[in-house]
Simulated assay, not measured.
Amino acid sequence: MWNPAEYLTFADHRGRPYGELLARVDLADPRRIVDLGCGPGNLTAELSRRWPDAAIEATDNSPEMVDAARARGLDARLQDVRDWTPSADTDIVISNATLQWVPEHRDLLRRWPTELVSGAWLAFQVPGNFEAPSHRVIRAVARSDRWRDALSGIDFRGGDTVEDPTGYASLLSEAGCRVDAWETTYVQELSGPDPVLEWVTGTALTPVRSVLSEDDWAAFRADLAPELTAAYPMRTDGTTYFPFRRVFVVAQVR
C-alpha cells in the first residue's frame, strides 16, 4: 500500500529527475503522452503545460496513487505496467522511477519499440542505488534474527535490479532505437530527524510495511533508524547528505 503523502515529503528531490529526463525529449507536438507509474500525479500534471494539445494518459498499479492523481484532475487509471500496450497515436512514453519494481522490465523495453510508431519516444529513469548504504542496511536488518522469518517473502533487491546506462543503451539499440543514456548522482541535502529513514519509508520500505503489524512496523523502523544514521550522519548544520544515483534513458524508435 503506497502512501501519497509520504511519497511527496521529498517532492522536490523526487521530481527533479523527471524534468531532466523530459528535457531530452525533442518532440514539439505529440498526439498522446503516456505516463506509466504516474504516482500521485504531481509531475504528470506538468505535461500539459509543455504540450497543451496532447492527450495525457496516466496509469499506476496503486489504488492510493491513482486516487491522488485523480484528485489533481488527471484521468488516471489503475493498471499494471506489464499489461499496458500503446494506442496507435502514442508519441511519448514516460516512466519515472517505476520500472525498477518490475522484474520483467527488460522484456517490456524490448517489446515496446515493436509496438510504438516510428519516431515515438521512450523516456525513463530508475534508481541506480541498490548497492548504496541505505539498501545494504535495509537488507542487513531484514535478515537479522529478529526479522528474518517475518520478512522472508520479500525480495530485497540488489545491484542486478536495474542495468547501468550501457546495458540499457545496448538493449534498446538492439530493439531498433536511437538511444541517449546517462547516469547522475544527486547529493541530496535532507533535513529533519532521521531523514533517510523517512525517505526510504516512502519507497523502498513499502513492501515491508505491507506485511507487518503496526507494532512490528514501528519496531522495525526503530531497529533501522540508528543504522541509517550511522551510514548517513547528520552534518554540523543539521542537514544530512544522501547521495542518490539514478539511471536515465531516452530512446527514439527508428
Rank of each mutant, 00 (worst) to 15 (best):
P133Q: 04
W121L: 04
Q188E: 15
A150P: 08
V137M: 11
D80T: 07
L151E: 07
S170Q: 14
Y168M: 07
R106Y: 01
P113R: 00
Y168S: 11
G153H: 02
D91A: 11
P103N: 02
R82W: 07
V81A: 12
P165Q: 01
A175S: 14
R157M: 09
W182L: 04
S95D: 07
V162M: 07
Y186E: 10
E189T: 15
V81Q: 00
G159C: 06
R106S: 08
E163P: 05
S118H: 07
I138T: 09
E163H: 08
P133R: 11
V126S: 03
G176Y: 02
S87Y: 01
T98S: 03
F130L: 05
L151Q: 01
R82N: 11
T98K: 00
V117R: 08
R178E: 14
N129T: 07
D145V: 03
L109Y: 00
D80W: 09
D160Y: 02
P133T: 14
D91N: 08
L99F: 13
L190I: 09
W121T: 00
A175N: 06
Q188W: 07
G176N: 08
D89M: 07
N96I: 06
D83S: 15
P113A: 05
R82D: 09
S87T: 14
W147I: 09
T90L: 06
V187H: 14
S170D: 15
Q100A: 05
R146H: 14
D180M: 09
A123G: 08
T98P: 05
A169V: 00
E131P: 06
F156K: 01
A76Q: 00
W101Y: 03
G158D: 11
T98N: 02
I92Y: 02
S134G: 15
D145F: 11
A169F: 10
G176P: 10
T98C: 15
S144E: 12
R77L: 08
R146W: 05
P127I: 03
R143D: 15
V117M: 03
P165I: 03
R136L: 15
D75M: 04
V93R: 00
V102H: 09
L151V: 09
G159H: 07
G128D: 13
D75Q: 14
A88Y: 09
T184F: 03
L78Q: 12
Q79C: 14
R110Y: 05
V179C: 06
P113Y: 02
T185G: 13
R146G: 06
R82C: 13
R136N: 14
E115R: 07
A97F: 10
S170C: 11
D83Y: 03
P133H: 10
T161F: 11
F124T: 06
R82Q: 12
D149G: 04
H135N: 15
I92D: 05
L190V: 14
A76E: 01
D75E: 15
D75A: 14
E131C: 04
V187G: 13
A169M: 04
L116G: 09
R111L: 08
R136C: 09
D155W: 11
S95Q: 08
I154L: 15
